[in-house]
Amino acid sequence: MPRQYPHEVIKHMHTFRDRLIAWISAASVLLITLLFLWLVLDIFFKGFAGLHWSFLTSAPLNAGRAGGIAPVIVSTLLILGVCMLVCVPAGLATAIHLSEYTVRNPAAARLIRRSLDTLAGVPSIVFGLFGASVFCDLLGLGYSILSGGLTLACMVLPFMIRAGEESLRSVPQEYRLGASALGFSQYSVLTGILIPVAMPGLSIGLILGIGRALAETAALIFTSGYVLRMPESLLDSGRTLSVHIYDLAMNVSGGEANGYTSALVLIAILVMINTGARILTQRIVHEVHI
């Protein structure tokens, strides 16, 4: 026979527990926000002094200790562009297949999902070695922006596919049934209902993918390379911001100041791209709902 507590005590215990949970969650939010702020402010204060217009528009000098990062920014954006041009269509198509077309073959779907989850956990250096042997050597692209972008695409695809699939599957089944009842074609259902409704989730997948691509160093040292020249084509080797920051921090004595400034630029680019992606997806959602 369990002990009987008076009603007031039970009520008190409940409110105490509820408050505790609210407290703990608020404290963790505070902690995480503080850590994030610390990181950003640290980079901001150490990097802002070196941030001039000329830093963004001139080439690096003296192994990156002096001069700017113009070619590095261009290479970064080109590599990201190649990666996204491959990732977005291929990732969306695979996500659609997994969520909409594998109902009859759940075993195959499970296998694909397992493989994707495994791929998502593979260390990036493995993708780097894979990219170096397939894109650089086998396909003869050499150290190039194209090799780097394609390697990144292989690395980012599993994330984008899984995020895309989850958001497509979270669209209520009634929408599909209703559309079928009205005689919509599969194409109209996809472009008119499923993709727009799943857009917020799809955009999160995209943003996470962009973040992972911009942060990558290990895989790119072996594929897009280390060259600081302004790229003239997608077949030129080019150094990304992350590789540049890594080199300044780890290999170049006295390169820290410019490393911090480059990190600040990288964060700024990331924020700008993410905001852009969010605005774009919001506009698509908006258009459909009117």
Partner: peptide
């Protein structure tokens, strides 16, 4: 690599017919 990259840049400025790619 950082040293050779700098040497390569000076080399390219004097020999426009070559392109030197330095990888680490």
């Amino acid at each position: 690599a950082p040293l050779i990259a700098d040497i390569a840049r000076r080399f390219e400025s004097q020999h426009a017919e070559y392109q030197v790619d330095v990888q680490s």
